[in-house]
Simulated scan of single mutants.
Amino acid sequence: MTELIDQFFNLDIMRQALPYLLIGLVITLALTAILAPLGTGIGLALALASDSRSPAIRYLVRGWVNVFRTMPPLVLIIVTFSALPFLGLRLPAMACVVIALLLNNTAYYCEIIRAGLESVSPGQSEAARSTGLGSFDTLRFVVLPQALRNVLPDLASNTIEVVKATSLASIVGVHDLLYAATTIRSVTFNTSALTLAAAIYLLILLPAVRLTTRLARKPEQA
């Protein structure tokens, strides 16, 4: 038992590792701050395009969603990091991670927002247009706010998945929270830094998970 505690809960190693882990945490939060808004915005554009009058655009969007929802994020990161140099694009590892995770997460955001748009009754649009609103204003002021409110728990849940997916960035050397923890483990031959990193993830994500649960319950209570 003493050896177990020393291997996973060595307070001295945790104390020394904390500053380095916090630097990694900044990178993790920066990745999330880039991926979540961009993923939502591109997902919204794809969701709107999926209802296009052009069959070609609809098929392209459906193909995007099907392909990138199927591909594991780790595979996308490795392929992006390895393939882009052969195309003449030598991007930083962090940029490759952002591209790969965007490919994956925009597909999920698209499906969530599309479901939200379909949940709004067509009568809402008809009523808005009867008051003189154009198509764009009807979407902007009537349909979209209701659609996003209906799928808010799912959007929040997917954003939590984005935070967790950022840990995959360590595979290509991005100095995120997990990379910092595994580096310290390789130097100290002790797992306490990983235990501390897990605790940091828990402190960040547990309130978000609880909030998502509360958002999901509100429609039921209503």
Rank of each mutant, 00 (worst) to 15 (best):
A49W: 12
H175C: 04
V187Y: 07
L48R: 14
T182V: 15
F68P: 11
R140C: 10
A169T: 11
G132S: 13
V67I: 15
E118C: 07
L101H: 12
L102E: 13
L101I: 14
A216S: 11
F189L: 09
L60F: 14
N150H: 01
T188F: 12
S54A: 06
L38V: 06
V162D: 00
I113H: 02
L102I: 09
T159C: 06
E220I: 12
V98D: 10
L205Q: 02
S52F: 05
F81A: 02
L196S: 01
P153Q: 04
S52M: 08
L211V: 02
T166V: 05
A180C: 07
H175I: 04
I5D: 08
T131Y: 11
R58Q: 06
T2V: 09
V187W: 08
D51V: 05
L31W: 08
S52D: 06
P145C: 02
L211E: 03
Y108P: 01
T212C: 05
S125F: 05
A115Y: 14
I77V: 08
I200L: 12
L155Q: 02
E3N: 11
L18V: 01
I160Y: 07
L46P: 12
L103W: 00
I78Q: 07
N104H: 15
R90A: 01
L133S: 06
A49N: 07
A165S: 05
C96E: 01
Q124H: 10
I77C: 00
L168R: 10
V142I: 15
I78M: 03
T159Q: 06
T166H: 07
A156P: 01
G43F: 13
L101R: 11
P219K: 10
V162C: 03
V143F: 08
P85C: 07
T2G: 02
A95F: 07
L196D: 05
P219S: 12
E161V: 05
T28M: 06
A193H: 09
T106P: 10
V75H: 13
A100M: 12
E111F: 02
P73F: 14
V97D: 09
V98F: 14
A197H: 10
A198G: 15
T70A: 14
A83K: 00
N150D: 03
N158T: 00
I99L: 15
K218M: 08
A147Q: 04
A36E: 04
T213K: 03
A181C: 09
D12L: 01
T131H: 06
P37F: 13
A107H: 13
A199W: 08
L84V: 03
K164C: 03
E3S: 14
S186I: 05
M1L: 03
